[in-house]
């Protein structure tokens, strides 16, 4: 008797658990499904807020409109360019800095001083305004470089990879050095292959960061034609960017030209590269390699 009751109770708990977890998963999918549904819906239905997770009066009108919007595709190309170039620069710099820093002071006498410099760069910064003034002074504003160079060195990633490099067995390194390899060759032939998962994770996060970043665009780019995609979307979807617009007439204008279905299409297309890559990359961050503190 007792046993039967127990079994029933467990079943009941299981149902609750499954329901909650699945509801939570849906809550995470909903935003994107809703955006997609709106983008395929009739404009009137979308404005009236009648669209849920399925399109109302299915149409591809907004995508047809989007195809004709040259600036969108220009911004998309800018985002591709900065993501590819920016990520390459990020990862190369991370690798070449992490390697000497992973050496002991016996192997590399200046390791300590370099480490202090890098740590200080992580702990303290001049803030948004002085950085802006430097980028501006260098004449980088309104160029692709302003989106890439100021954040080219990810100090946190350098430290992450440095710790990973330290766990590579010493014998492997010594073996290549007996063969007369220089540090670049050792790094290339031993350390990089040994740290593939860590490097892949860093690449993933740098790429997502570049793709999603809108703020450096707002900060350093003044001409809309040079906007990266997220900055462009931000400028058209934010119902009104009040910090820039003070004229009430302009605000009105912003509100009336904001087209819900078209904006949804813009958002959906902008997340496509991410969605396509997503299934292939989940295994890298599932290992939890980037989260949590470094173990001593």
């Amino acid at each position: 008797m007792g046993k039967a009751v127990m079994k029933k109770r467990i079943r009941f708990a299981d149902i609750i658990i499954y329901m909650i977890t699945i509801a939570l998963a849906l809550a995470c999918l909903l935003p994107l499904l809703n955006m997609a549904a709106i983008s395929f819906s009739n404009s009137a239905a979308a404005t009236a807020g009648r669209v849920g997770i399925l399109p109302v009066d299915f149409t591809v009108n907004s995508y047809a409109k989007l195809l004709k919007e040259a600036q969108y595709w220009r911004s998309l190309m800018i985002s591709f360019a900065r993501t590819i170039l920016g990520t390459i620069i990020n990862i190369v710099l991370v690798i070449v800095m992490a390697y000497p820093l992973s050496k002991s002071t016996r192997e590399f006498y200046a390791q300590k001083i370099y480490m202090r410099i890098v740590l200080f760069a992580m702990l303290f910064n001049g803030g948004m305004i002085p950085t802006y003034l430097v980028v501006n002074k260098l004449g980088l504003c309104d160029t692709l470089w302003s989106l890439i160079l100021p954040s080219a060195v990810g100090v946190g990633n350098v430290i992450l990879l440095m710790n990973f490099f330290r766990s590579v067995p010493k014998e492997l390194e010594e073996a290549t050095q007996i063969d007369g390899a220089n540090p670049f060759q050792t790094l290339w032939n031993v350390f990089i292959p040994m740290s593939k998962p860590c490097i892949a994770t860093i690449i993933l996060f740098c790429a997502v960061g570049h793709w999603n970043d809108y703020f450096t665009g707002i900060l350093y780019i003044s001409k809309i034609r040079n906007y990266p995609l997220q900055t462009y979307i931000q400028s058209v979807t934010a119902s009104f960017d009040i910090s820039r617009v003070t004229d009430p007439k302009k605000i009105q204008e912003y509100l009336t030209i904001s087209e819900k279905t078209l904006n949804a299409a813009k958002i959906v297309v902008s997340t496509l590269p991410l969605m396509i890559m997503y299934p292939f990359v989940t295994k890298y961050f599932k290992d939890g390699i980037v989260v949590g503190a470094v173990k001593e």
Partner: peptide
């Protein structure tokens, strides 16, 4: 020779850090 290689590896990143992180630090005098 190895030391020179290590310095060489540090150089590009350090150069960018100096320009975009350390120079702005002096900007705090503003």
């Amino acid at each position: 020779k190895k030391q020179i290689y290590y310095h060489l590896m540090m150089f590009p990143g350090l150069f960018l850090l100096i320009i975009f992180t350390f120079v702005p630090m002096f900007g705090v005098v503003m």
